[in-house]
Design a protein around this nucleic acid. Structure first.
Lengths: 150, 150
DNA sequence: CTCATACATTTGTACATACAAATATTGTAA
DNA sequence: TTACAATATTTGTATGTACAAATGTATGAG
């Protein structure tokens, strides 16, 4: 289904259409992922933070580093991390070298949660992208990467 | 900048990378647009509804129709419309044929607001998509349209 | 006609987000 | 060393979102 059919609108110029197409497609992917995460009582943002922390491979990350790397750089990473602490998925401590900074570390429970969620999300991603060949996926990535060089 | 550099993560499989790339790029576009809309004290969602209503060309739309066509099908179109009514950009009335339904119509003020915002958003879209040729934009749209046929 | 069901919207409530201001710590220039 | 600016995070507050339950209206079976 073309984006014009999807949102029942024609007569859009190519730029507008492209922007709307990206926003619209993104929303569909986001909702599909959220539905899976809901079962584990984590939001996409929380999942995103957990994956960033796992990527640190044991090294703690500062709040600001986490925020920089987040897909959705919502403010209040503080409160987002609070939620993860309450659930036991991350630990927080004050950085010894610079006491303004905070160090966040994923716990064993957090890592186990990711191990449980990962295959479901990967599976879902595969399903959602099923209609495109690897070549097409590569092209899509290249175009999006290029787009951001405005 | 590739998505791996952007979010400082490598070793992602192609599917995961593509999904993250779409979400990430979408967020950038969304924030850029929101910044413009903020000056006019409307959110992207409200702007989206106003454009849908303008597309009706004088014919009122039901709440459910509006919701179907929204990019972000957030619930509470009711309260979203409330805000637009308070600002004088739309009118609401009960549908005479089916009193369960509500009819929403954009006002003259709403149309004028869109006339003011449109060129700024179009200009911004052009700027944001500047790095891609028309051919590339077309390909991008085709890939996104195809993607949604999962 | 009247009851159950479906439909369209609204409302309640918990939670999340955005943005600004406040707090705490560090670095540095006089 | 003190004062000022810069940095990193937290907190306050208004607004927005998600989801379920409630309300009001229409439709069809018996």
């Amino acid at each position: 289904m073309s984006i014009e059919e999807a949102i029942q609108s024609n007569q859009m110029d190519l730029n507008t259409k492209t922007v709307i197409n990206i926003l619209y497609t993104s929303r569909i992917l986001e909702e599909s992922g959220s539905e899976i995460l809901k079962r584990f009582d984590v939001t996409s943002q929380q999942f995103n933070v957990l994956r960033i922390l796992r990527g640190q491979k044991g090294k703690p990350a500062n709040l600001s580093t986490v925020q920089e790397r987040m897909i959705d750089k919502s403010s209040n990473t503080t409160r987002l991390v609070d939620k993860l602490i309450k659930k036991g998925y991350v630990k927080r401590s004050i950085c010894k070298e610079n006491r303004r900074k905070v160090e966040i570390l994923i716990t064993e429970d957090g890592l186990n949660l990711l191990l449980e969620i990962d295959p479901l999300i990967e599976n879902n991603n595969t399903k959602m992208l099923n209609a495109l060949s690897n070549n097409q996926l590569q092209t899509l990535n290249d175009l999006l990467d290029a787009l951001r060089n405005f």
